[in-house]
Design a protein around this nucleic acid. Structure first.
Length: 541
RNA sequence: GCCUCGAUGGUGUAGCUCGGCCAAUCAUUGCGGACUCUCACUCCGCAGACCCGGGUUCAAAUCCCGGUCGAGGCACCA
């Protein structure tokens, strides 16, 4: 109807005709309909099957000419929000066959720390994202000074000597300060040189843009461009006193590196975008195109760097790599695969409405990635001891994966004691017959104590109607650290990190540290240490 | 408080630009079934949603008005 607007006036007539046709079609069988549809409309059906586009179209984007950026501030370890953000940028660059620049926004010497630079380089490498070039914003200090001086000389900027309180007050009153009104270009130039020479201390002088004190957008009311910081910088040392603000540094860096599109989450806001565009304008450079999307949250986990840092400092979590966190270190250590992240983006999309990612989505994607390639072994927690009264001492071989034969098999020594899982205790009752998976059937004879039973080998063949459970013979001790959601109902879940003790197969000792395996009917786990005891962590079910 | 965005099943999304193809997509979750000597993987099926109130229209998830709720911003942080 939308395609044929001239028919709109004849709706009623059409409705009658349509009804007739519908009756005819309904009288056909499904097979007939399918057949006819495929004959007549093969083209259309094909078209409809096209994939939905998860990535937005970039404004003014030309294939091969797009350049995006990963702009971390090296003041903390990367977390899932930044990882997904890097991913979006990488995917969009891929879509337009463009380039990516890694740019460290390290212009706040108070926050920047050397160790975090490598942390970001590492995460990008780990995620297999491409980088065409790398730059440090703090390497361009002379450029900011030069540009600031240009602005001052063009009377677009001034040096302000007001106190922080005064600045705030006049901003809210929408009134310019006397520094703006009274300082001549010469005076501003002189003051700037003094700032540069170290004649002012922090808080005494700032460079401000002559914006618009009456602007609705408060960010435009004579914004501060540069300020003094006496902190030593992690990379640049104590060479500089004046440091640019983000809104000044960013447009300049984007211009220098030739970034065409900025994709970032909404916390930067429209106000910033307007301000940065204004700064660009005064500088005589063209601003890039902006596109924003919502922040990503993970249900039950803190996603703000600041909060994570607090939790680490207050020792509520064990560190940045605590399994309950969604930092790079934690996700990697837990066993989440790098391929998961683009798939998350494909699933949740790039939208402006607030996006909460459920752990179950992460687990589901991860499980599908690891399942075909990880070994399957048996593990029993809270073991129950079974004494076999008519033992068959032998060695048996069991495949390490139900369908991936390349993983080979393991050999298990069977003797007169088996261990079963405490979670299966309901099945272990006198006279019940249970299948030991891949081994034989046992019949429980007698309960000796709470966790010890005697049993006899009942038969060898697979019986259909009895439970089939995992077991361990010739055991090795295993300890598994298991993380649950750190936040439950907005409260810290104190019991969210537990240890599970049990027995595993000797085969574990031959495996690699870091290897992921599936303990059947228990979950996926990762090996962290092998000694007398095997230490592992639970990834997900 | 001010400003900007947003609101579709338990969760996340598609559809909204240009009203009819939407008794609403896909995924996750839950339940059932097939396969399997696992509660994994794979496959099949079922369950479950258009924030509220008005208006425009033959027809509203879609357009208009008014609410409500949520997110983000309002630094000499990025």
């Amino acid at each position: 109807m939308a395609n044929y607007p001239n028919l709109r006036s004849k709706v009623k007539e059409l409705a009658q005709k349509l009804e007739k046709v519908v009756k005819e079609v309904n009288s056909l069988t499904t097979e007939e309909v399918d057949r006819i549809a495929h004959q007549k409309y093969a083209e259309e059906i094909k078209e409809e099957k096209k994939e939905r586009e998860v990535l937005p179209d970039l404004p003014f984007a030309e294939e091969g000419k797009v350049k995006v950026r990963y702009p971390p501030e090296p003041s903390k370890h990367p977390h899932v929000g930044q990882m997904l953000s890097f991913c979006i940028n990488d995917m969009l660059a891929e879509k337009y066959k463009g380039k990516r620049v890694l740019r460290f926004d390290d212009t706040n010497p108070e926050k920047v720390r050397a160790e975090y630079y490598d942390s970001f380089r590492e995460v990008i490498h780990w995620m297999n994202l491409k980088i065409d070039e790398e730059s440090l914003a703090s390497d361009y200090m002379e450029v900011y000074y030069e540009k600031a001086l240009d602005l001052i000389k063009n009377n677009y900027a001034f040096v302000c000597l007001c106190s922080r309180e005064e600045v705030t007050k006049l901003r809210s009153e929408k009134k310019p300060c006397s520094c703006n009104l009274e300082h001549s270009v010469e005076k501003n130039t002189e003051l700037f040189e003094k700032m540069n020479a170290g004649n002012f201390s922090a808080g005494e002088a700032v460079v401000r843009l002559k914006g618009d004190m009456k602007a609705e957008n408060a960010a435009l009311r004579d914004p501060i461009l540069l300020r003094i910081s006496e902190h030593e910088h992690a990379i640049q040392g104590d060479k500089y006193h004046i440091w640019p603000m983000y809104d000044f540094e960013s447009p300049i860096m984007e211009n220098i590196t030739g970034v065409t599109h900025i994709l970032r989450s909404i916390e930067f806001g429209k106000m910033r975008e307007e301000l940065q565009s204004l700064v660009s304008e005064k500088l005589g450079i063209t601003p890039p195109h902006f596109l924003e999307y919502s922040r990503f949250k993970v249900i039950g986990a803190p996603t703000q760097g600041r909060i994570i840092r607090e939790l680490v400092e207050e020792k509520i979590v064990t560190g940045w790599d605590d399994y309950r966190l969604v930092t790079y270190q934690a996700l990697k250590r837990r066993g989440i695969q790098p391929e998961v992240f683009p798939k998350i983006i494909e699933r949740v999309g790039v939208t402006k409405s607030s996006t909460s990612i459920d752990w179950s989505l992460i687990f589901s994607i991860n499980r599908k990635i690891i399942e075909p390639k990880v070994k399957h072994l048996y593990f029993v927690d809270n073991p129950i001891k079974i004494d076999i009264i008519n033992p068959e001492l032998k060695k048996i071989k069991i495949p390490l994966h139900p369908y991936n034969k390349e993983l080979g098999e393991r050999t298990i020594e069977i003797n007169d004691v088996l261990y079963l899982s405490g979670t299966d205790q309901d099945l272990i009752k006198e006279n019940s017959i249970i299948r030991m998976k891949d081994l034989y059937n046992i019949k429980i004879v007698k309960k000796q104590s709470a966790d010890t039973f005697s049993a006899e080998i009942h038969s060898q063949e697979i019986l259909t109607d009895i439970p089939k459970i995992q077991w361990v013979s010739d055991p090795i001790e295993v300890e598994i650290e298991k993380a649950e959601m750190l936040y439950l109902n907005n409260r810290i879940n104190k019991d969210s990190l537990r240890k599970v003790q049990g027995y595993g197969e000797k085969k574990l000792q031959e495996l690699q540290i870091g290897e992921i395996i599936q303990f059947e009917r228990f979950g996926y786990t990762k090996i962290n240490n092998i000694a007398e005891k095997v230490q592992m962590n639970y990834i997900h079910g």
